[in-house]
């Protein structure tokens, strides 16, 4: 059986907000290690890989690996019944036909209990090869969200060019064109806002802005985001949390 108690229930609410528009149904794979999820969107253009490590929960108990098939829209609806400061406990027994959720307020004088019906989801698990990326950009997650949203006014896609000087996000469309360049600035006072670039080779890649904007729904989970790129391989957008991560992979656009 699974028992996982999360002191900051708001984290789970934010995680659901960050994935529920990209994927509808997914298995939460529970094991000793924690709770993981991997799923592609319907069009197989983007993939979400989530890990909530066991040490983020107190206590965390999972005797036997379990796959909890969840409709994410339903789960996010139930999570809306939890207060932002509530402690959330997830429980499932080995038959895994329901997921029990308990929300306790901080005064511990209001306890609400919900049960969500689970479903059988036959999803294939994909092997994600270890990749050494040609360019890795670390930047403010709020800045990345702003750039994606701003450029979406101009075009459906963005060209990302990374050199050792900086990273340029450019978009061209019917009404005109726009570009935002962030210079590498490791010396800024505010570490959280620094743009850092690790570069083996310059890269120039095109991606759908619709998906990137969707990924930025994870912004409340982390102040930093990393963009890992190599020519003609999927972009990796990673938000690191205290005990885990949310990674998005996006297939590039090719051709002129």
């Amino acid at each position: 059986m699974l028992e996982a108690r999360l002191q900051t229930g708001a984290l789970l609410k934010k995680v659901l907000e960050a994935i529920k528009e990209l994927i509808t149904d997914a298995n939460f794979d529970c094991s000793d290690n924690g709770i993981a999820l991997q799923a592609m969107d319907n069009s197989h253009v983007a993939l979400v890989a989530l890990l909530l490590r066991h040490d983020g929960f107190e206590p965390y108990r999972c005797d036997r690996s379990l796959a909890l098939g969840v409709n994410l829209v339903s789960l996010s609806k139930v999570l809306r019944c939890a207060g932002n400061d509530d402690i959330i406990t997830l429980k499932a027994d080995d038959t895994a036909d329901v997921l029990s959720l308990t929300f306790e307020n901080t005064d511990n004088d209001r306890i609400s209990e919900y049960e969500l019906k689970l479903m059988d989801i036959d999803s294939e698990h994909l092997g994600i090869p270890d990749t050494t990326y040609e360019a890795v950009v670390q930047m403010s997650s709020a800045e990345f969200a702003r750039i994606c949203k701003d450029l979406q006014v101009l075009s459906d896609s963005v060209q990302i060019d990374v050199t050792k000087e900086g990273v340029k996000f450019g978009a061209k469309g019917e009404l005109g064109s726009g570009a935002v360049t962030l210079k590498q600035n490791g010396n800024v006072d505010k570490e959280e806002e620094a743009t850092l670039i690790e570069l083996q080779q310059n890269v120039s890649l095109n991606f759908s802005l619709k998906y990137l904007v969707n990924f930025t729904k994870a912004t409340p989970l982390a102040s930093r985001v990393s963009l890992s790129m190599s020519s003609e391989v999927p972009l990796l957008v990673e938000y690191k949390m205290e005990a885990g991560y949310i990674r998005y992979y996006l297939a590039p656009k090719i051709g002129e």
Partner: peptide
Amino acid sequence: QQSQTTLDSFFDPT
């Protein structure tokens, strides 16, 4: 015109 690729050719089912 650019075309959108998919992830199928990059990631293998395990």
